[in-house]
């Protein structure tokens, strides 16, 4: 009887542990399947034309993604440019100045909620406050929507990274007579710089692939455009429009764009991790 119970417990253990290995393989399998799909469908079409020619018209056998790539670079650049200073300053308040105030946990809480809020709603919000009020779809509206995604990510990483700087360093600098802003900028930021940069890289990687917040803000543009006042093309928008189209070249470009964007995002993520780990090892 007791032997029976013992065997049953062991069997249950082996069974559940086996399942646990299997579901881990299940998760890894999908990562592999996604990447394999992207390479097998996209690699053949990722040639120089993708980078030199603009998006083709319907049925056109030529054309590339040059305008969409430039659009994504511009939108991402301005999104990060707007979002980063706001995020770093807000994160600085949370750890450097606001530690003892009730507002700090409240801001942290709200920020964490924004961090996971649906990005399509941010697009609708920017549509309401910018697109309607200031003359239509534009690259600026797209960049603002992306900045709203950057801010919570950077606030979170700044807050966490400043916490790694020992208080003795701040105290040493204050004891030497340095004002708090100088302590923060030249001592705290400097020693947390790797972490801060990692946060910005992760935020950049996040917005490069974002589609939903751009649908109603920068809208997309089939022509060459570097004017941020006008509707701006972006890789994810082109992928969305081209993937489900009946035109062969469009479908091929969608796969090439998907591979390009995924590789960029994955490389940035892996770099950010390596960067952070390298700095911790020092």
């Amino acid at each position: 009887m007791t032997m029976n119970l013992y065997v049953r417990r062991r069997l249950l253990n082996y069974f559940n542990l086996t399942i646990s290995v299997l579901v881990t393989l299940f998760g890894l399998f999908f990562l592999g399947w996604l990447l394999w799909t992207l390479f097998s469908e996209g690699a053949r079409y990722l040639d120089w034309r993708v980078f030199t020619e603009i998006t083709p018209g319907p049925g056109d056998a030529n054309g590339g993604l040059a305008n969409a790539i430039v659009g994504t670079l511009l939108l991402t650049f301005f999104g990060v440019l707007f979002g980063t200073p706001i995020g770093i300053l807000a994160g600085t308040y949370l750890y450097e100045f606001g530690r003892r105030y009730w507002i700090t946990p409240a801001v942290r809480f709200i920020n964490d909620v924004l961090l996971s809020a649906p990005s399509i709603v941010l697009g609708v919000f920017v549509y309401e406050i910018l697109v309607i009020k200031f003359g239509g779809f534009s690259g600026w509206a797209g960049a603002v929507a992306l900045a709203l995604i950057v801010i919570p990510i950077v606030v979170r990483t700044t807050d966490n990274m400043l916490a790694l700087v020992p208080d003795t360093m701040r105290e040493a600098a204050v004891a030497l007579g340095a004002p708090r802003w100088k302590v923060t900028v030249s001592i705290v930021y400097r020693s947390a710089s790797t972490g801060l940069v990692t946060g910005v890289i992760l935020a950049t990687a996040q917005i490069i692939g974002e589609t939903a917040p751009l649908l109603f803000t920068s809208l997309g543009n089939q022509f060459w455009n570097t004017n941020m006042d006008k509707p701006m093309p972006a890789l994810p928008l082109v992928i969305f429009n081209f993937a489900m189209s009946p035109y062969e070249r469009w479908q091929h470009l969608a796969w090439a764009g998907a591979l390009l964007i995924t590789l960029t995002v994955l490389v940035m993520n892996i770099l950010a991790r390596a960067f952070l780990r390298g700095s911790k090892a020092d």
Partner: peptide
């Protein structure tokens, strides 16, 4: 898996 964009 979380880094791969939704559209992919």
């Amino acid at each position: 898996l979380a880094a791969i964009p939704s559209i992919i």
